[in-house]
Design a protein around this nucleic acid. Structure first.
Lengths: 338, 338
DNA sequence: CTGAAAGCGCTTACAG
DNA sequence: CTGAAAGCGCTTACAG
């Protein structure tokens, strides 16, 4: 059983290969009758275009590469990445793009591969889950002259396409909520070295300032996205007697929760917690945590759609897309479902 | 700056394109001097072969597709899949294969895509994280005559390549450990509808029988891999006064742990727990859980390497690979790291 | 609206 | 050990 090719279809339909190609690619200017005839033959034969041939001839592959750099250490401690990938995959499926995944463990592996990948012509464009730290990766990508879009605002550069979440406003909303519910000594567990963390800290500051509360640096601790670091940070903060804490990740919020419980304090009675992230963690906490939910799945979808748009458009005006986050206030009793 | 092609390299090196191709593909029978000369030109020009052209000419793409079927609902509640993907990705990187990810949300999406993907010629072979339920997917793949390897033993069929974990022996070891540490009324939280679950239950039974303990069906409850289901199952089991429980997933073990605590019983003093899975969950539990650790990352690597081997070999003797699992006994105090 | 023809950048018998 | 040539299966100006 040999593969059926475009030429076979052309012969069977009594048209030229060019016409079949045009039908497949939805070109206009095909007579309806001819189009139908070709479509019928395609249907009957089960013809599928050969991707390699198409790619070689057209210089497009319809493959999007997702790069997860070596710096992304929290791959497995967070819900973030799996959900993001789900969003990306979904969008690829519905736009008939294929997703390629590049997951790098070490910087060396990253360096070795990225050149080869970008230059091989396999991938039309990339999505990068990069961070402030990954400027090297970004410069490689720029050098390869391949279109790419970054998930998360890059530190500098307005020249880079990105889609991000409203981190500042989100954090602001969460902290304002704490203030409005009567809290005054609001601590935060922040992160360094990534723009999301920096922005969330900025939102925290802004909320305090706008509500006339002085910023007390002793109420600011830092973690590294892990639950353990949230635990440790909260232990330090407890000495300063906060009555609420805004953790810039749900995972760290979970650690904070544990530290508070271990200190025999009650949540949210003694100390209220607000987290920030993709929610399932916050929901499963006991008591479930109030959180600022970022639309991670949507971020993935929008990244794909924007990238496709970039690939198809001529202009190279950089796209900067910022999606809203949402404050979700949770009752303090856990009923076991979601 | 135009792309440099194989012909450019040939011209610069003063050889024929065929020779350059042979050098790139490590064919034997190239004079050392010529090989060096060609290599130098490749180095200097930064030449990268065009994947589409190579793929069209050779009928191989060096792309492996990872299919995660719509039935895999526990994508985000388990560490399993991310770790597996990491192992797969690692192996792909080191063998110069590219990984394509196909994540299906619905059965319809799956059906619509799988045909197209298999027939497009883009992918050399597939890895499927399939389960008993996914016979439809498997038959599609068989119909497309594309090599594939399944993660997890298929229900029937010795004709299918697979790599699996020693589920029976693993569970046996865990339950035997409970018996040896003095427990008699050992309950289990099992799962249905997947061979791993069935095998783990078989291992549980075998351990009891071989140690002369009668099997009490009242001590067998079922869950669906979620923490909630583990919680509910444990609540039922508690009425039967078990002194230990073997949960066939760490996630369900976590739910069981919570149920035991909520009943004001102590772990492991009143009831010992043994889980089965990829460990990080068990480590983070408080107290950390004794668990049978499956080598998920290695499963991923082996799957890739076996698939590559299948692609390159002539024989189609099916490969059945079963990797050992390991009992990890945890002290009952949690020190917060790992 | 449609076709003939060139070309995309490789690989691989075949011949020597 | 090396080269000339055909061919992989498409797309796309170009011409009509």
């Amino acid at each position: 059983m040999k593969r059926v090719t475009l030429d076979d279809v052309a012969r069977l339909a009594g048209v030229s290969p060019a016409t079949v190609s045009r039908v497949i690619n939805d070109h206009i200017n095909i007579r309806g009758e001819v189009r139908e005839r070709v479509r019928r033959v395609i249907e009957e034969t089960g013809y599928q275009p050969n991707v390699a041939a198409r790619s070689l001839a057209s210089n497009r592959s319809s493959i999007i590469g997702l790069i997860i750099p070596s710096g992304v250490q929290f791959v497995f401690t967070d819900y973030y990445l799996p959900v993001l990938i789900q969003g990306i995959s979904q969008a690829c499926n519905s736009h008939d793009y294929t997703l390629s995944l590049f997951l790098f463990q070490t910087l060396e592996e990253e360096r070795r591969s990225i050149q080869r990948i970008a230059a091989s012509g396999l991938i039309d464009g990339f999505i990068v889950t990069a961070d402030v730290k990954d400027t090297e990766l970004v410069s490689h990508l720029l050098a390869a002259r391949k279109p790419f879009i970054q998930i998360g605002r890059p530190q500098d550069a307005d020249l880079i396409n990105f889609v991000d979440v409203e981190n500042i406003t989100g954090a602001y909303t969460g902290v304002a909520h704490l203030i409005q519910t009567g809290h005054q000594r609001i601590a935060t567990i922040a992160t360094k070295n990534n723009t999301a963390g920096v922005d969330r800290l900025a939102g925290y500051r802004k909320a305090l300032v706008e509500h006339g509360i002085a910023i007390d640096n002793a109420l600011i601790a830092y973690g590294d996205w892990t639950e353990e670091s949230g635990y440790a940070a909260m232990q330090k903060l407890l000495n300063r007697k906060p009555d609420a804490v805004f953790a810039s990740t749900d995972t760290m919020a979970l650690g904070a929760l544990r530290a508070i419980k271990d200190a025999d304090l009650e949540v949210p009675h003694d100390i209220a917690i607000v987290g920030f992230d993709d929610a399932p963690i916050a929901v499963k906490a006991n008591p479930p945590l109030t959180t600022i939910k970022q639309p991670t799945r949507q971020v993935g979808r929008v990244a794909v759609e924007t990238l496709i748009d970039i690939l198809q458009s001529e202009s190279d005006t950089p796209r900067h897309i910022i999606l809203p986050s949402e404050l979700i206030i949770r009752a303090s009793s856990y009923n076991g479902d979601d």
